[in-house]
Amino acid sequence: MIRTRGLTKRFRGGQLAVDGLDLSVPRGSVFGFLGPNGSGKTTTIRMLMGLIAPTSGTATVLGESMPQSVATVLPRVGALIEGPALYGFLSGRDNLVRFDAADPTADPRTRRQRVETALERVGLGAAAGKKARAYSLGMKQRLGLASALLQPRELLVLDEPTNGLDPQGMREIRALVREVAAEGTTVFLSSHLLDEIEQVCTHAAVMSRGRLVVQGTVAELAARAQGRLVVRTPDVARAAEVLAAHRVTGLVPGEERVDGELGGPGDEALPELCAALVAAGVRVHGFGLERGTLEDAFVALTGEGFDVAG
């Protein structure tokens, strides 16, 4: 669906925004494009959409090279790039009419109807006649999504689609993304929210400082993060001693808790370990494995916190 080879963008100031990106988005996937703010996600998306020209490397979207094939590729792609942008003096409906009129392959005869359908789909039916300048950020975001859904699309590119939405709005947008994906549209979703990617995506790629750190299925990525054993207890020091004696490594004593890597012994050792703790007089309040998350995987991969801007 999307494939890039050595895609690179160096801005005029000499800043390397995207560095040798080899991205491969399979058809039918919901692809999470993950990375901290400033890691080059939006620049990559702009290159994929033909808005900016790559300094070197190639990008193909729907099997055709960009930005040369913009006219044949983009009518089949819906996009939300770096937040919504609207004509404040036009109503929500007229904004959509304008964006639809910009597509020369869109049929003017079905325009009204497609606009209404898109408005209903994002829950803006009631506010469609209001001037867009009176919209809240969440409503603007929805209207941006509606413009991406004016036509049935093969690919939907969504750059931070839940930015500025309240939790209810986020849930609705994610439900919409799943719905669109279920219809067979490939979704390319950029986000800096890990749980968002974990909730909706089948595949993911992680960017950091303009480079691709890793890509694969979400399950594969999460598996990279090892589960950690967590013991909740007031007797932190005593518990740590017992765990160390049972070959648990990487022990981190915390406030009323100790956690460490189970490593060698594996899951079978858990009951024995628990018994040993109790036998040693440790007051065990909680005992268990915490499953690895994408965030752990990310930290393990990049060695940096997620909120660090590149």
Partner: peptide
């Protein structure tokens, strides 16, 4: 300035046509 240009171009309006 308002950013609507990028949405027109990905519609795609076509730069010459726009």
């Amino acid at each position: 300035a308002t950013g609507t240009l990028r949405y027109l171009l990905v519609a795609p309006a076509g730069r010459t046509r726009l």
